[in-house]
Design a protein around this nucleic acid. Structure first.
Length: 718
DNA sequence: ATAGGGTTAG
């Protein structure tokens, strides 16, 4: 190594290597490399040696870069930086953890070789940190090393540090670094804004953006605009979004296709589809992303028909859909249960060779499951060699959505055997399967898994867990989990209330409602279904009326059929049958089928046959398909001795093609599920069970309890 | 003479 003027071969090799690096010309560079080895230039000139490392690194040949690096005897800081940045720029968790290894080795060897990290080193390191498996500690440590080496005032280092903290979700730390930087450029501002954008902090992003425009207007470019737009993806930011739209027009940056696309996306996510369409139509330059943005916008806002329509229009313009387009279209199909269109997209994605892309296949599995085609969903799932946790969860969730809860649990076990680590959504999904099965034992095992994997009782898991316990009848455990949840949303409150109310703890459910209100959580329509049904269980007619009126007057929630049903149930159970009848007749007529049915059952319990007959006739008029309605009505006429009417009801029942679904119940004991269908004699211990039922019935009768048998007897006699 | 940061839009 020498500081003397270089011999001319080295100088020429060096400049040729630079050219190959710039052009990423691997072949030419390799030829040069072999010539360099023959003349011995690499061992005599550090510049040439470093250029070789850099050349291989830039051509993504990291193995060769590493070999060339290790051959250098007197590595200087540039040698290290070329290799570190080579790995850092390629990204991924393996490369990034190797960056950290190199960085540590460099620090270990620093004193013996007199090599110290500089700004170039730290930028590479900070870029690698977010890709690490556990990035937090490493990031903070590297930051403090950079402080010790007095590197953080460098604008490159500072910007990459802001970027690092932003990606780690530590936007406050990013902001601290940002505020202390003596110099900022366009990169710095974009990184800061993106940090806010990923946290959905639109107000902060806007504030920083305005600061930038005020301080250094020259910094406005397409990157700044797209990053601030990505932070404005909800309805509350629509005004800011329009401001940015104006600015994009004034600055002429709207003609940049990425900016136009970002604006279409922003309007789509804000639910302003009219503005999205207008902007889209005025785009001077449309690409597949523009179309995807619009299609996804419609799909997300619930107008799935329009999304599908746009998709076929896109095809007629010969615009090739990307994987993102197809994901959007598949989501639209799931939403409206359009399995026909979904199948077409399936064929299309196979044709385009997207069959091994996990995101698309996940959307497809989801589509089939939501359309009720679980077998097709499973086929798609089985097609992929290495499903990721999102796909596993989608398939398990697909089973749950279709009521195949046992299959969901079986698949979860298979996943565990395969050593796949579940995420929070997986746990919530499996717990839902347990809730639906009322499978307490399995539920407890999943709870053990929750603890084992270290999931917190945050909303998805904590909520699902408390619901599971409540639905399985373990109200105390459910309540315990609920109390220990760090935060609760309206859904968690609703679920706990329904769990309490279903298990006979109506007063506790109402108490919970008052508590929810005092903690400032806004109730939704489900909350009131729970409240009213709790009132109904407890026979609290007055309170029921108060809540029913409060719902629309104070909270602006329009009552749905469920609320009307709760009220009719409440009045019927309390024996206020005439009041119930009047309430039904003052309610929207389209709820009739549901409401008269409830009143009819109420009339049976209170033996009010005249009103029962009235309700039953209403149900027949409305064309009820409910077998119990016809059975009850004909029983009533039997009791009233109106033979002709009995015949008429029977004829109507046959005419409507009403069939009685047999009642079914089940219980899980010693990890075996025992199923009972009304009238069957399938259970191996059927005789025993019947004897026991007879014994219990006798006990009940001896206690003086008289069941409502007369209607049933009437039905049997006729 | 050699080494460094934004992937933002679906």
């Amino acid at each position: 190594m020498t500081n003397l003027p270089l011999p001319s071969p080295s100088r020429s090799f060096f400049s040729k290597l630079l050219l190959c690096t710039h052009e990423k010309n691997l072949k030419q560079g390799q030829i040069l490399h072999s010539q360099i080895i023959q003349t011995g230039s690499s061992s005599s000139c550090l510049f040439v040696a470093n250029a070789i490392v850099n050349f291989y690194a830039k051509c993504h040949r990291l193995t060769e870069a590493k070999l060339a690096f290790e051959e250098i005897q007197n590595k200087d800081v540039v040698s290290w930086n070329c290799l570190i940045n080579g790995y850092s720029q390629l990204g991924g968790s393996r490369n990034s953890s190797f960056v950290m290894e190199l960085f540590q080795r460099m620090m270990r060897e620093e004193s013996e070789n007199n090599v110290y990290p500089n700004g170039h080193t730290f930028t590479g390191v900070f870029t690698a940190v977010p890709d690490l498996k556990s990035p937090l500690g490493a990031g903070k440590q590297a930051h403090s090393v950079a402080v010790a080496f007095d590197s953080v005032s460098d604008v490159y280092v500072g910007s990459s540090l802001v970027n690092m903290y932003g990606k780690l979700g530590l936007v406050c730390d990013a902001r601290k670094v940002f505020d202390r930087m003596p110099e900022r450029n366009s990169f710095t501002w974009v990184n800061m804004i993106c940090g806010y954008a990923v946290q959905r902090l639109g107000v902060e992003a806007m504030r920083v953006f305005k600061l930038m425009v005020g301080v250094e207007e020259w910094g406005l470019n397409e990157f700044v605009l797209t990053s601030v737009l990505s932070a404005l993806a909800t309805t509350e930011f629509i005004v800011s979004g329009k401001q940015i739209h104006c600015l994009a027009i004034k600055s002429g940056l709207l003609s940049v296709v990425s900016v136009g696309n970002a604006i279409v996306t922003m309007y789509g996510k804000c639910g302003s589809l009219d503005d999205a369409v207008k902007t889209f139509e005025l785009l001077s330059d449309k690409n597949t992303i523009s179309w995807s943005a619009l299609i996804t916008g419609f799909a997300k806002s619930g107008d799935s028909e329009k999304a599908l329509e746009l998709f076929s229009k896109m095809n007629s313009f010969m615009m090739k859909p990307s994987e993102f387009t197809l994901v959007g279209v598949l989501n639209a199909c799931s939403d409206i249960g359009a399995v026909g269109e979904g199948k077409q997209v399936h064929g299309y994605l196979v044709k385009l060779g997207f069959e091994s892309q996990i995101y698309i296949m996940t959307a497809m599995v989801d589509m089939y499951a939501k359309c009720g085609c679980v077998t097709d969903a499973r086929k798609g799932f089985d097609y992929l060699q290495e499903p990721d946790i999102v796909l596993w969860t989608s398939m398990i969730g697909g089973y749950v959505q279709n009521g195949q809860n046992e299959d969901a649990l079986v698949l979860y076990c298979k996943m565990q055997i395969g050593g796949i680590f579940p995420n929070e959504l997986t746990m919530a999904t499996v717990l839902k399967a347990c809730s639906s099965l009322a499978a307490l034992e399995q539920g407890k095992q999943i709870h053990a898994n929750v603890v084992k994997y270290g999931f917190s009782l945050e909303i998805p898991v904590g909520s699902a867990l408390s619901i599971m316990y409540a639905k399985c009848g373990s109200v105390n455990e459910g309540n315990l989990v609920f109390r220990r949840m760090p935060t609760r949303d309206v859904i968690s409150w609703n679920s706990m209330m329904s769990g309490l109310s279903q298990n006979g703890y109506g007063n506790e459910a109402l108490e919970l409602f008052e508590q929810m209100m005092s903690e400032g959580t806004k109730p939704d329509y489900v909350t009131f279904v729970n409240v009213l049904s709790a009132c109904s269980h407890m026979g609290l007619v007055e309170r029921g009326w108060i809540y029913f009126n409060k719902m629309s007057n104070e909270f602006g929630i329009v009552p749905t059929v469920e609320h009307y049903a709760c009220m009719v149930d409440l009045l019927s159970r309390a024996g206020k049958l005439t009041e119930a009848k009047e309430f039904i007749e003052s309610s929207p007529t389209e709820h009739g089928l549901c409401l008269w049915q409830i009143l009819l059952s109420g009339c049976r319990n209170y033996r009010d046959y005249d009103l029962g007959a009235y309700a039953g006739e209403k149900l027949m008029e409305l064309g009820s398909k409910e077998s119990s309605a016809y059975v009850l009505l004909s029983s009533i006429y039997t009791l009233l001795g109106r033979r002709g009417d009995v015949e008429r009801v029977r004829r109507m029942m046959n005419l409507q093609g009403v069939n009685k679904e047999p009642g079914c119940s089940w219980i899980e004991m010693k990890s075996q599920v025992h199923v009972f269908v009304a009238g069957d004699q399938m259970h191996p211990q059927d005789k025993h069970i019947r004897t026991e039922v007879q014994r219990l019935s006798k006990l009940i009768k001896d206690e003086g309890f008289k069941p409502v048998f007369d209607l049933l007897c009437a039905d049997l006699e006729s």
